[in-house]
Design a protein around this nucleic acid. Structure first.
Length: 106
DNA sequence: AGTCTGACGGTAT
DNA sequence: AATACCGCCAGAC
C-alpha cells in the first residue's frame, strides 16, 4: 500500500482549507480528525515553516496564542488584513469568524 | 527508558 | 472565577 496520510498531512490540509477571513481552532481540527488537540498543536507548530495559513488557527477562546511564531507581519496584522478585528490579542466576534471543519467539510 | 514540553481542551475542585 | 489536573501524542534530551 502506498504511504498513508499522516495526521501531520491531514492537519496541514485542513489548515490550508481555511478560507480567508475565517479562523478555526485546534480543538475543531482535532475533533474533525479524531485525534487529540495535542497532536494538532504538534503538527501545526512543526508546520510553522511551511506555507500554510496557520495564523487562522487560534485557541478555543479566539486568542492568538500562536502569535509568537509570526514575526514579520504579526499574526494580529495578518488577521486584520483579512478583515478580522483583533481586540486585546483575541478575535473579536470570534464566533462569527469561526470556520468549523466538521460543518464545512462534512 | 524516563521525563518534560507544546501555538490545546475539558472536567474537577 | 481561577486553578489544577488529566487526556493525548510526537519529539527533544
Amino acid at each position: 500500500m502506498p504511504q498513508e496520510f499522516s495526521d501531520f498531512d491531514n492537519i496541514q490540509e485542513i489548515v490550508r482549507l481555511i478560507p480567508e477571513g475565517k479562523v478555526t481552532t485546534y480543538g475543531a481540527i482535532a475533533k474533525c480528525l479524531s485525534i487529540s488537540p495535542r497532536t494538532v498543536v504538534w503538527a501545526i507548530r512543526k508546520s510553522s515553516t511551511t506555507p500554510i495559513p496557520a495564523h487562522r488557527v487560534v485557541n478555543r477562546n479566539g486568542e492568538l496564542t500562536g502569535s509568537r511564531a509570526f514575526e514579520n507581519p504579526s499574526m494580529e496584522t495578518r488577521l486584520t488584513n483579512e478583515n478580522i478585528v483583533i481586540e486585546k490579542n483575541s478575535v473579536k466576534n470570534f464566533e462569527s469568524y469561526f470556520w468549523d471543519p466538521l460543518t464545512q467539510l462534512s
